[in-house]
Design a protein around this nucleic acid. Sequence first.
DNA 1: CGTCCCCTTGAATGAAGTCAATACGCGTGG
DNA 2: CCACGCGTATTGACTTCATTCAAGGGGACG
Lengths: 246, 246
Amino acid sequence: MATRLIRKLGYFTCLSTGDVQAISRLSGSQLRLYRPRELIMREGDRPEFINLFLDGWACRFKDLENGKRQIMSLFVPGDLCDVNVFILKEMDHSIAALTSVTVAEVSRSVFEELIINHPRVTQALWWETLVSASIQREWTTSLGQRDAAERISHLFCEIFTRLDCVGLTVGNTCPLPMSQAEIGEASGLTTVSVNRVLQDLRKANLIALRQRTLTILDFDGLKRRAMFNPNYLHLDRDGDHLAANS
Amino acid sequence: MATRLIRKLGYFTCLSTGDVQAISRLSGSQLRLYRPRELIMREGDRPEFINLFLDGWACRFKDLENGKRQIMSLFVPGDLCDVNVFILKEMDHSIAALTSVTVAEVSRSVFEELIINHPRVTQALWWETLVSASIQREWTTSLGQRDAAERISHLFCEIFTRLDCVGLTVGNTCPLPMSQAEIGEASGLTTVSVNRVLQDLRKANLIALRQRTLTILDFDGLKRRAMFNPNYLHLDRDGDHLAANS
DNA sequence: CGTCCCCTTGAATGAAGTCAATACGCGTGG
DNA sequence: CCACGCGTATTGACTTCATTCAAGGGGACG
């Protein structure tokens, strides 16, 4: 079921019952399972579906000629992979599962049927697209201007907030199913640096992290350390001012 | 006139005469002029227009609490600033002019009229949106995995290619109206580092750069130095495979 | 029991940042 | 016309943060 997505879009606007049902129908699309590290889309592929992530984590990444890899973004349950990708002839990067992953493969026709008949959902998906772009810009900012500890702290603040709005946190804990190497690939650091930063954050009593579970012991402190401002996630019911038009 | 945008969209698909006329009408929107360094949108503003850049360069940027600034993306003539931004309640970053800038302020109603009546233009604008997102991911990759010389070389390759596809290059030269400090803000480096990298690229006979004009003396060499693969710009007539559906 | 992956730690190295001084080009106003 | 100021570019010396290299430890699993 697409409950994660529906819950997330609720941060943008109030969806009607019909809207909710229409979105639910997306997860009636062909489901596909991937194992950890399995490729979901490969650079050069022609995109044929919009992947709706129902369960598990995945990432976009690019391998460079010099052997380095950058994880450019993360997918968590409730995320959609590029509304309207099939407009592009081929993928310019790859997508891989980080954990076991379940996706619904939404076809072009199913998607178009949805947006033609549900203008409010269309708006909500636009919002989702704009937020994804905003997250990507924030990652650019992190890599450009934040030091190692700030980057990782920021990443953790973002992940916790994103998971919280799809109901995947428990108290001050959330899953974090990434190895230190993968955290490094996402934050432009080496495994060794990630490890040292994590030690520091633990010593400062900001976080605990073990067995792929993150506990945020001092969210305010972590936010301060990260210079984290959640405004870029646009979770404050952005859509309300558009209600009159719907 | 919106000739730059029209020319760019031509890399995606063949537009009909009616499509072209409809896009041209966008530049009949309220025009606005900005001077160098003037703010075009401010963090916290409610977006009310889609800015279509007709002339001059601008940038998105974010100021961090520690006083650092990251330029997250560049706008050159023919670029659109966030199709459908008015869905967001407020801007999470600012946009400033780098040079003197002319924009057309496209209102929500004018924009909606365009996409309702011109499905092929709608597709082309989706393509533009997806390419912008792709560029943002490439910047993330650059900042995460490329060293100083590679970042700046990559930036130059990208800028030249983008300008070329809107007709703003002359031979192997193009405008580059950014100070070394601004190049640094875009590439996550200090002015001093930018200066040293530029010396190196000049000594290697890859580029010349003076008076805000970039000359690429050895594009292949520069691409190699940058690990530049233009696939992420999707300029190879991506739209052709969709022709049957239009 | 051995292997593989992941995490941890120390020491040496290196890329980019910081600090600081100087030079250059250009427009303004005396 | 020249002096001045301002923004921009350049250069050298020093520092620092993160990387690299290398080694070892722990846990899961066949």
